[in-house]
C-alpha cells in the first residue's frame, strides 16, 4: 500500500527512504499554524491533506517531493 510522509524536515524524510513526501509547516505543528484563525488553520491543513491524497493517487518511480 502506498504511504505518504508528511514531514517538516524533508531531508530526513528522504534519508529514511520515504517515496512520497509532502513538506509541512513546522516541527511543533506540521499540519497547522497557531498564528492563523481556527478556520484559516483548518483550511491550511485541508490543503496539505488534499496534497497528500494526490500523492497517494500518483504513480511514482523514485522518491518524490510533492
Amino acid at each position: 500500500m502506498p504511504v505518504v510522509h508528511m514531514a517538516s524536515i524533508v531531508p530526513i524524510s528522504q534519508s529514511v527512504g520515504a517515496n512520497r513526501i509532502i513538506p509541512t509547516v513546522a516541527i511543533p505543528y506540521p499540519l497547522g499554524n497557531p498564528t492563523l484563525s481556527p478556520a484559516e488553520e483548518k483550511k491550511l491543513r485541508r490543503g496539505l491533506v488534499e496534497k497528500a491524497l494526490k500523492a497517494l493517487g500518483a504513480d511514482v518511480t523514485e522518491q518524490t517531493v510533492f
Binding site: 500500500m1 502506498p2 504511504v3 510522509h5 508528511m6 520515504a18 506540521p30 497528500a52
Partner: peptide, 13 residues
Amino acid sequence: KEANVQAVILTST
C-alpha cells in the same frame, strides 16, 4: 494490510 487499508498518511514532527 490485514485490515484492508489501502493507503497510509504518516505524519512526522
